[in-house]
Write a protein that binds this DNA or RNA. Structure first.
Length: 600
RNA sequence: GGGCCCGUGGUGUAGUCGGCUAACAUACUGGCCUGUCAAGCCAGAGAUCGCGGGUUCGAGCCCCGUCGGGCCCGCCA
């Protein structure tokens, strides 16, 4: 083959006169008759090559070139004629006059065009992912991902961390997400599980004295997919010994700051990152991962309405429910028709999160007209004024009210808050608003199973001042747990771990595990805690999500080379797929037909 | 398990109060053209409108079912 002497991103005016050979893909071809331009593309850039009848053989070949042919060209670099430079290309001052052109591989018409401004159906994109990945946008995302991970590795190395691999074939654990299982051929009837995270191994590395560990770790969870959830994903997994929460927060804040500073056009976010307790976050934003790029905080109205005559609010407060409000800036300036449509859409939003209704009060822009809200007349003047003051509602605003259990109010208004911010364009692009959420509850009551679940995971330590209430009032026990949030996306979370056997046993007991089950599943952890375990803690960052945000993408599939679709299918290879009976026989596995849903 | 939205030439879209001989752009094929850079101009081919059924004189459009996809709820220690 005709090997390149440099890449399609290299040539500059100073290279005028050089003999060069380029390899690449025919990105665009412009045939003027007797002169043909081809933009030759590789991952480094685009270079214009020119073919004329002066090189008759090359010209004949160039006439047959189509999009995405792989070419090798030999020729001479020359400055473009005055006025013909292309400032849009790094190589735009020059072009290569071709003396020899070789078609290394032709290409059939493509299933979609290789360009950023035409978005093909995502199934087609995934089926031909190798073509999708040629598009500049995905090339940039994948390159950004490389740089991000490289930067993380260097940062961790500079801070004294060791990168250590942990098993992919490991043991199924009863807690948390569904495991992906791998049958053992050597032990028919037994199974490995793919790790949901390297949690136990990294803690045991602390017991082993490795002190500062990290890993770019692939994790697997067999749960339903979302735009920000793939069944396999990558974490920056970190664990440290002889540290407290502040050490972990400092370390990771610095890493995040560096990522933004070095990989985006945004200014480095200032340290320390803002911090909220879980209780504050839920109260003020209705979310444990608040987007703090805009205001619109939730306001409690309960105390203002203790004597209200408004029936549904009175009833809600009497039942011990919450009444909270959210300001919709400028919404009262919409026409009656538009406002009704908007309210209807917002009712739909809160309904999804369990709210039975959405009340609204408009404050007319002129400060005089009668409100359009059908319920405004039930409030007395003092109440309206108090609500406006509490919500800092100006003339022209609408205030939305949800009365329900604390959980429903938070979820409904928390989500509505995001929706209003988007609709009213309150989020300026290009921001990276980090936030630490701390003091998570240790456990969470599971209504369905009638038991306590670990909010983070069962190895998370309770706050020393709360530990005495683990048995008497578990809901009030706070954990040494922390999450880092970026632009309303949960980037990662961690905790200071339990390192004492008795505390760990109390935790398992609280979670409803019998001593026998605990010994069977977690005996190795409990044993380790009796052989000199240092105080330790750590964190894991979702790398896919981080890069999605750095790249301003809406889905982590845009930053994963070969992602699965929402049905957990990878359309290119056709994964998952059936296997030979012989393979199953070897594993001692027999398939039973999956029961069809019964028809009523 | 559930909710909402979307399936129209290869690709992206329009057409959705029923009248279509299915439109536009691009890609594709052929022709013209020596300075373009999303090149341009001319001509051409290419779609049983995801699939099945129904309503109707007539269905891309309405109804029912089904398949595929996206977003979300549940789920995700």
């Amino acid at each position: 083959m005709l090997k390149r002497t440099l890449t399609c991103g290299d040539l500059r005016a100073a290279d005028d006169g050089r003999q060069v050979t380029l390899n690449g893909w025919a990105y665009r071809r412009r045939d003027h008759g007797n002169i043909i331009f081809i933009d030759l593309r590789d991952r480094y850039g685009v270079t214009q090559v020119v073919i004329t009848q002066d090189a008759a053989e090359a010209y004949a070949a160039a006439e047959k070139v189509r999009s995405e042919f792989v070419l090798a060209v030999r020729g001479t670099v020359r400055l473009r004629p005055a006025g013909m430079e292309n400032p849009g290309l790094d190589t735009g001052d020059v072009e290569v006059v071709v003396s020899e052109l070789v078609v290394e591989n032709a290409a059939k018409p493509l299933p979609f065009e290789i360009r950023d401004d035409v978005e093909a159906n995502e199934y087609t994109r995934l089926k031909y992912r190798y073509l999708d990945l040629r598009r500049p946008r995905l090339q940039e995302n994948i390159i950004l991902r490389h740089r991000s991970v490289k930067l993380m590795r260097d940062y961790m190395d500079e801070h004294g961390f060791l990168e250590i691999e942990t098993p992919i074939l490991t043991k199924s654990t009863p807690e948390g997400a569904r495991d992906y299982l791998v049958p053992s051929r050597v032990h028919p009837g037994k199974f490995y599980a793919l790790p949901q995270s390297p949690q136990q191994f990294k803690q045991l590395l602390m017991v082993a004295g490795f002190d500062r560990y990290f890993q770019i770790a692939r994790c697997f969870r067999d749960e339903d997919l979302r735009a920000d959830r793939q069944p396999e994903f990558t974490q920056l997994d970190v664990e440290m010994s002889f540290v407290d929460q502040e050490d972990v927060i400092d370390l990771i804040s610095g890493l995040c700051r560096q990522q933004v500073a070095e990989l985006t056009a945004a200014a480095a976010p200032s340290l320390p990152f803002p911090r909220l307790t879980y209780a504050e976050a839920m109260d003020r934003y209705g979310s444990d991962k608040p987007d703090i790029r805009f205001g619109l905080e939730l306001q409690n109205l309960g105390d203002l309405l203790s004597d209200t005559g408004v029936g549904f609010l009175k009833a809600a407060l009497a039942a011990g429910n919450q009444v909270k409000a959210l300001r919709g800036p400028g919404l009262a300036t919409l026409s009656g028709q538009k406002l009704r449509e908007r309210v209807k859409a917002y009712e739909e939003v809160v309904r999804i999160y369990g709210a039975k209704g959405l009340a609204w009060l408009d404050f007319p822009a002129d400060g005089e007209s009668a409100p359009k809200s059908p319920i405004a007349k039930f409030f007395n003047t003092d109440e309206l004024a108090a609500i406006a003051e509490r919500c800092q509602a100006e003339p022209g605003d609408v205030v939305f009210i949800v009365a329900d259990t604390g959980k429903v109010v938070a979820a409904a208004l928390g989500e509505l808050r995001l929706r209003i911010a988007r609709d009213q364009d309150l989020i300026a692009p290009g921001q990276f608003a980090f936030l630490w959420v701390v003091d998570f509850p240790l456990v969470d009551w599971n209504e369905d199973e009638n038991r306590w679940d670990a909010m983070h995971h069962p190895f998370t330590s309770p706050k020393p001042e709360d530990i005495d209430r683990m048995e008497s009032d578990p809901a009030s026990v706070r954990a040494n747990a922390y999450d880092i949030v970026l632009n309303g996306v949960e980037l990662g979370g961690g905790s200071i771990r339990i390192h004492q056997r008795d505390v760990q046993e109390r935790m398992f007991k609280l979670l409803g595990h019998s001593p026998e089950a605990t010994a069977l599943k977690f005996g190795h952890m409990l044993d380790a805690f009796e052989f000199g375990t240092p105080p330790h803690g750590g964190i894991a960052l979702g790398i896919d999500r981080f890069i999605m945000l750095l790249a301003s993408e809406q889905s982590i599939r845009e930053v994963v080379a070969f992602p699965k679709n929402q049905q957990a299918v990878e359309p290119m290879t056709g994964t998952p797929d059936v296997v030979d009976t012989a393979q199953l026989d070897m594993l001692g596995i027999r398939l039973v037909s999956i029961e069809k849903k019964e028809t009523p």
